[in-house]
Computed example of a mutant assay.
Amino acid sequence: MNDECRPRPVFDPGIPEADRALLAAAPERLVPAGKPAPPRPRVRATTLAARLVWIPAFAVFYGVLPGGWLRVFFLASLDQDDLMGAAIRWGRLPVAAMMLTPALQILLILLGQPEAAAALAAASFAGWVVGAVRHVREPAAARAAREYHGSYLLPGDFDRSAARLLVRAQHAIDGVLGSQSHGAGLLDDVNNKIVLPRQEWAIAGALAEHTRLRRERRAQQPERLSAGVRALLEPQDRALELSVQSITRRIEALESYALRAGEADDAYHESRVLQSLPEQNARYRDLLASTAGDAMAGAEIEAMAQDARRAETALRERVTSALRAGQELVLPADDARTLN
């Protein structure tokens, strides 16, 4: 599936905003709804025991011996995988940089700054402890991906035809939310920030179900079935076709709304240009008065004023048309998850 036909992930609007942000920021942890939910991670007993041993060992090291040999001993005792894990998981500084800490402690002691050396030791030890505890605990994004599995839909949940329809819906939604008329509050009556995510989720849910049904039908290998059995399956195929048509009409309604919002944008742009007309008219009036008769100047200025009024009328008409198209998209709360 190329990028043009690849929809973005869709999240249930009922997911709390903070958790939606976690999920969106960690797409690599998300699992398609059509696959089993990610399991709860289990910490190996050996890993947990190692953390429990390392923490007091480092406490003794930092409290008693401000040297580097013991630290080198501990790092050398790790196998390569654990060493890489320590470098990646236990802080953002490389392990080599952390090994310089004892040398800095000794230098501070020689310079007569034992308090600074103690503070450095405490900070470094705290970093190791935080890294160990954080590694044992399940990351927040992994927890959200597991708990909300099925409440988000990924490109893998859609076949090619469903993905194309979802991309069309998402492009229309982006067109509305990115329009100047929406940004200026001209379309606030539709409450786009609530209605459009509900629409996207409802459409995506229906398209994911279409995909599951088509995949199940392909797995049945209908070409190997007898004519009588295929006849029994025809009502199911017809029901799926009708549902696809219904979803397509809803997407077309979204596209119509986006088109009306674009037209309102054009009128809004014209209205902003015409807002400066009064000042400009005064300048042009002075210009015409100095170069033509009063009657001609008055006629020209009146024509400009009429153009401004027509532009304002066009803006109101286009915004009204966009609002009417948007109102048709509002779903009742109980129907937000399902579309026929």
Rank of each mutant, 00 (worst) to 15 (best):
R71E: 06
S124K: 06
P139R: 08
A119E: 07
L154W: 00
P66Y: 01
D79Y: 06
G85H: 10
I88Y: 13
L93M: 08
A132V: 05
L107F: 09
G156D: 15
L93Y: 05
A123C: 04
G156C: 04
I109H: 11
G63L: 04
A59S: 11
F74S: 01
L154Y: 03
F125C: 02
M84V: 14
L100A: 13
D82Y: 00
L107V: 10
A126D: 11
G85P: 03
W69H: 10
G67W: 06
G91K: 10
F125L: 15
R146Y: 04
P102Q: 06
V136S: 04
W69S: 12
A97G: 05
A132D: 05
F125G: 03
Y152P: 00
G91H: 07
R164A: 03
A163S: 12
L78R: 06
D82L: 13
H149W: 07
M99W: 06
G67A: 12
P139V: 10
A87Q: 14
P139A: 02
Q113S: 13
A103W: 09
I106V: 15
L120C: 05
L120D: 00
P155F: 04
R92A: 08
V64Q: 09
F58I: 01
Y152M: 09
S77L: 05
G127F: 02
F58L: 11
A141W: 11
E138H: 07
E115M: 07
R160N: 02
G63E: 06
G131A: 07
L107D: 08
L93R: 13
S124C: 11
R164S: 01
I55R: 04
A116N: 07
G112F: 12
A141F: 12
M99S: 02
L154Q: 03
R143H: 05
E147D: 15
A118V: 14
G127W: 00
